[in-house]
Design a binder for these strands. Structure first.
Lengths: 203, 203
DNA sequence: AACGATACGGAACAAGGTTCCGCTTAGCAA
DNA sequence: TTGCTAAGCGGAACCTTGTTCCGTATCGTT
């Protein structure tokens, strides 16, 4: 996203210290997110990075911008895994379960991310725009393939499914006896047209 | 919960103004919850009730205590509906879907309640203790009946299912294109051992 | 070396939760 | 009826966290 240089008369390339700070902030934020979830206090992140709070707002106007920047690589990896999984599995449904696995892994290891993704608060508009725009089409492609093969019902949209999965992942780390994966598996089982094809056990 | 009088040497019966205030607070809180969700600012509730903030804390030490008190009646009604539904439906699975419907209705009409129920934050311990202690056994009974009849898989516990449903209901009112009920239906479909028995359409 | 634009830090402000403390008043007894 | 005491009350004060503002420092260029 940040242009290295490139196009004709794009952004005039930021000052060196600004670029340095942005990088430092990303690392500090990543650390803070691991320690306290994505709701880590702005001051904490600023302190970790050794900058003032205003610097954070200057680089990342909303928390969502920061979150997006921190997790962009992982979202990208998840998105790219979709076509790959489709290619390497004969059954699109198998690819779907594997891909959803990746998505769940991503969500549950980032404390608070599922919650933010679920929320519709204006602050997270950026986060929605990026995460969903990037991942929904991937999910839709897998769903469509499975639908064509008659493996699953076709009356569910990708966004809807991902919202559901995201909701189930909220709070995954809050209780030892809440296993988001089992419930997601149940949800996916609900998609099947002929469930006797698959093992009926829940993980 | 508040003893009218009763037992031998129990709580020494609060002062009249205290009892009056408690009632006023419950009404004010109910109104505030409808207007702003269960996260309504303490000051708002206090203003509505015409009391100071400390009075709220005195009667309801945590927000969860207040929430529980406000919704106790409705939780009770939901709990009592369980056995009734089982009795009036031949298929326990049908009773299950109806009962879950009631539960979902309850959650989605109380902004923020599902979220609180899902959360494991220490503050909501009281809320968990009451809501879940009261409703989980009811759900368990219906699940067991459906399991005995071979309608659903038996490897899912009531608490687990209710957590899942609760999670799906979080954010039900946040997006016009998020329909918690459809997803809950999908989750319940995932429970079925022989889904071809039921209509495969999602509401 | 100097200058203008960019970026910075931290104080200041806002909003919400929680606690503290001096005052009020219900309930009881003389 | 009048006093007394403890339960109860109100709201100011305090803490935490997000957000903005502004005087100052620094970069990059001339």
């Amino acid at each position: 996203m940040t242009e290295i240089d490139g196009g004709p008369a794009t952004a005039p390339r930021k000052r060196a210290d600004a670029r340095r700070n942005e990088q430092t902030l990303l690392e500090a934020a990543a650390a803070a997110f691991v320690a306290s979830g994505i709701d880590a206090p702005v001051r904490d992140i600023a302190t970790r990075a050794g900058v003032g709070v205003a610097t954070i707002y200057r680089h990342f106007p909303t928390r969502a911008d920061l979150v997006v920047a921190v997790y962009r690589h992982q979202v990208e990896a998840c998105a790219e895994a979709g076509p790959a999984l489709l290619a390497e599995h004969d059954s699109p449904y198998a690819a779907l379960t594997r891909w959803i696995d990746l998505f769940v892994d991503f969500l549950v290891t980032k404390h608070g991310l599922a919650e933010a993704l679920r929320s519709n608060a204006a602050e997270f508009a950026t986060l929605h725009a990026y995460f969903l725009d990037r991942l929904v089409p991937v999910c839709a492609e897998i769903l469509a393939a499975a639908g064509r093969d008659g493996e699953i019902r076709t009356d569910i949209r990708a966004l809807e499914l991902m919202r559901g999965v995201g909701s189930l992942c909220v709070g995954a780390n809050q209780s030892p006896d809440y296993d988001a994966r089992r419930l997601v598996a149940l949800l996916l089982a609900g998609l099947r047209l002929n469930p006797s094809d698959t093992a009926p056990t829940l993980a």
